[in-house]
Design a protein around this nucleic acid. Sequence first.
DNA 1: GAGTGGTCTAGACCACGTT
DNA 2: ACGTGGTCTAGACCACTCT
Lengths: 229, 229
Amino acid sequence: MTATFRDVKADIMAKITVGEWAPGALLPNEIDLADAYGCARATVNRAMRELADEGVVERRRKAGTRVRLSPVRQARFSIPIVRAEIEEQNAEYRYALVSRSILNAPNWLRARLQLAQNCPVLHLTCMHYADGIPYQFEDRWISLAMLPQAEEADFSTLGPNEWLVSTVPFSDAEIAFSATVATADLAEYLGCSQGEALFTVERSTWLKENAITFVRQTFRPGHRMTTRY
Amino acid sequence: MTATFRDVKADIMAKITVGEWAPGALLPNEIDLADAYGCARATVNRAMRELADEGVVERRRKAGTRVRLSPVRQARFSIPIVRAEIEEQNAEYRYALVSRSILNAPNWLRARLQLAQNCPVLHLTCMHYADGIPYQFEDRWISLAMLPQAEEADFSTLGPNEWLVSTVPFSDAEIAFSATVATADLAEYLGCSQGEALFTVERSTWLKENAITFVRQTFRPGHRMTTRY
DNA sequence: GAGTGGTCTAGACCACGTT
DNA sequence: ACGTGGTCTAGACCACTCT
């Protein structure tokens, strides 16, 4: 019959959304709230800490807890592997390797990943299909300095995405979303017209300062990346 | 000299990235870890709980804690107001109202926001500039059923973005990223060529099942939305 | 200086899911 | 049935920062 941290959190959230505690307002301190809810301070603390993590309130020692003026609310996107993304839509997944080559990292890639000069890289291009329809074109670069075993791997049946996930962990990643015009090549791969606008995701990953891989994923026209929060 | 939950978290994370605990591996239980680190179980619990939140580890009662097979790592994006986004780049922000009208919600909007029939909405279009250069075109729809006071608000100097944030809280939001081809109109507003690929963000927000607003933000060519995780 | 949140502790009880 | 994580408690000390 005592209040849980979920109860406390929900009640505070309700008071905020209803306007009882307006943006910028100062909330009671943890001791008073604990008293009011009839629970321990640690319970209130957890509730408030989660609200702070979610960007609903702002906390500062001595200054207390305030409702954020501009709820800097954050959206979370899960970064799925393509296969899972497609199969979740109950579509049949198909993968194809388009090209494979080994070369020294071009300058743009060296700059992007902070690679040493003459670093050998494996360059792959692949296609992912959903129910036979082009879904995504993948342009993948893997550092052979960090992952020499990638040279032996068979990417004709298993996508580099899945191979990497099960082979090597990473400590840092950078992700960027943008829009690209379909070139003649891309249009052909994705079965669309040249000039269409394509949603693009670029991701670089590192393991302790050492670059592992860079990938550019280009989606078929009309693709949307969605989330709720 | 005792281990903090940050120490514990960092150490576990290190053991995972180094491969000492491989994907799928079962970690010791909380009591043993607390013993090993010389701290209380609650401390280990907090460290592990945060790792679970971040998708590094998976926890189940009785089954214990395992390193995730496919790290379902999540990226977090903050959803800033345009002014803040521009000023953060040390650019001068300028805002302009392009058009304003009141009408009944068109069908696509009613469907999208689950609005009642004949719901009056305020339709605004605006431009945001960074150092005088077109930065973003905003296509904004506000429910007058929920926010009648929007009809009186002066949007000629203050953007609807900022007005809404300081006026009304929200409980749920849906956000979608995509790519759009620049139409003649958009090209003119954004000072680019027709046919360019433009990065687009659409967001709908509700307050307890009641739709508040829908917005489509179209960015100038080349815009990238970036984050690290 | 004093008030606030940040964290740790040692113990306890409970909920869940595997066995 | 039993082992695991999930949560709560009451108390304590500390770190920050506002005044």
